[in-house]
Design a protein around this nucleic acid. Structure first.
Lengths: 246, 246
DNA sequence: TATCTGAATAGTGTATACAATGATTGAAAT
DNA sequence: ATTTCAATCATTGTATACACTATTCAGATA
């Protein structure tokens, strides 16, 4: 069972999504103190569910507590972003390894293979333009299913957590790639890795599955390097990087 | 800087420690619904800080949300415990690898080497009985410093999280070992691994450092197996296992 | 006896009021 | 002009009251 994000109640949910939007859209700057009353007023909720949402966002890592009290938007260094991506690779690698070592029921293997097949159709060069929205959806599904293949709730939870950081999400840089033709080819590479990971799991090759999943995450690292160093004007398109200060 | 656990305020702190004690002491059974009013009354705090504490405990993984509302004590399967230990090994392994790959400032290396040296003195067979309290303190310090050696706040945070699960703590099974002489020797093995991990980091041998740290965590796994399979009467001594249902 | 219905009840989610603590601004003195 | 002290102000932490929902228990009916 995939972690259902422990269904928040109405007002708390509204505060949560509203707050997330505010920080991701950059409408509140990193380091800035988050005034509870102002936010509660702006989001049309009471302070109680707002504080609950803030606490949840602290758990997600988007905000941090101020020693004197209250919360502030967390600012991420470039190194933080790199580490988060690396950590996702490590965790997904562990999921792949455990899946290979422990074995997975055929029905689950079939399910994720179907997702890979669907991704093939999207990535394959066809007449029209590539459907990036569809790619994102299938890609997220692949990574979510990979996490569950381990059969470990503890691990799945942790992957869910680290993935909730916008720049550590598997789709973090897919949006960017729509504009740069060279990037589209990285999706082909990514898809090759998807296939290889599943194959390794099927063959019970734990070490290989782990290494592949780690390398797969480093694709995101590459894209990060490209955006920040070679084509900084693209950075505004990757709204996941709104929180990065470097 | 070590994550200061984002200092809770007075009442919330009281509720937090009180609640943790209650679930660890087994005074509230796994699966049982946690009545907020009853707990607030029992812990002499209002419902507001109590709810804050409950949310923090959900983040730590000790309680889970009930779909209909409220919280329940989480029950851990034997597999959950195994996975949590494995995950600690993976994360500490990553910390060791990153420390080796990226290099660590000499002052930090000196600090953790001093801890290892102190541990040597404790483990070394002397005239009197071994000081397990001191061992626990130094052991915790070693693992905490290892986490920071990576230089990655993101990773340190995650290690802090998984380590907060009582049975995934580096000291989870040290208490038990006081009574069983055979266990005392495992501490010697553990200490050897401590040394080897630091040596590997110093030599910039990332892969070795990672493998060693992983194996080091599996010592806990061994102890778990021993307690549950060979000497179940010891289980009551390991209060970290109060939450395990198997 | 088993099941369905309904009301009583226990319990959470939310709003708001109050208290306590930290920040800020202004004035006064050196 | 700068620094220090004090007082006001803003903001959070906590308590409590209210409303709404789910759960449970009793009673009636099949």
């Amino acid at each position: 069972m995939t972690e259902q994000d422990s269904a928040p109640k109405q007002q708390t949910a509204k505060a949560l999504t509203g707050l997330r939007d505010l920080v991701l859209k950059g409408e509140v700057l990193p380091g800035e103190r988050l005034s509870e009353v102002a936010l509660a007023d702006r989001l049309k909720v009471s302070r109680t569910p707002l504080r609950a949402a803030l606490q949840k966002l602290e758990q997600e890592g988007l905000v941090v507590m101020i020693p004197s009290g209250g919360y502030a938007v967390r600012s991420f260094s470039r190194q933080d972003v790199i580490d988060a991506i690396e950590l996702r690779g490590v965790l997904e690698g562990t999921a792949a390894r455990l899946a290979a070592e422990r074995g997975v029921p055929p029905v689950k293997l079939k399910a994720i293979s179907d997702v890979v097949a669907s991704l093939d159709a999207v990535v394959a060069p066809g007449p029209g333009a590539m459907d990036f929205g569809l790619y994102e959806m299938l890609n997220e599904r692949f990574h979510r299913q990979l996490a569950t293949l381990s059969g470990s709730d503890v691990l799945s939870r942790e992957i869910e957590r680290i993935t909730s950081l916008p720049f550590a999400s598997p789709n973090a840089f897919v949006n960017t790639e729509a504009d740069v033709p060279a990037f589209q080819r990285t999706l082909v590479v990514a898809q090759t890795q998807h296939r290889a990971i599943i194959a390794a799991i099927e063959l019970r090759e734990g070490a290989r599955a782990e290494a592949l999943a780690r390398e797969h995450a480093r694709l995101a690292r590459q894209n990060l390097d490209f955006v920040t160093e070679e084509q900084p004007d693209l950075r505004s398109k990757v709204l996941a990087l709104a929180l990065m200060s470097g």
